[in-house]
Amino acid sequence: MIGADTPLAGSTIAQRLELLSPIIADLVPLQMPKGSLGERPWRYCLLTKESQQQLIPVDPARAVKVKPRSSMPTWLDPLYAALSIALQNREDPRLDKEDLRRLQIYIREG
């Protein structure tokens, strides 16, 4: 059941489908694109949006933080890049180097 103690933000794609299917008909589970890891896609890949105007879902736990050039208001969601896209753009100074290092262990999965 969806509620204050079980926020949607904590659920995986499969769990969301299970929770929402009774109230929304014909729900189709999101397929994570190749190179975007994780099961909780609540953010999008900024680099893909900038370069191809496409929205690729990312799981913030398995994505690389993008540091904005200027400070953002706190009500805006943090920015991310899908791991594979970030690896193709390693030289982008906005990419969080610590995240790139932290996520190394998942590269083979992607």
Partner: peptide, 16 residues
């Protein structure tokens, strides 16, 4: 606390 748990980044940290 419940407002914070609506941020996936928060939940991920706590779960880890």
């Amino acid at each position: 606390w419940r407002r914070l748990r609506n941020f996936p980044e928060y939940l991920d940290l706590i779960e880890s």
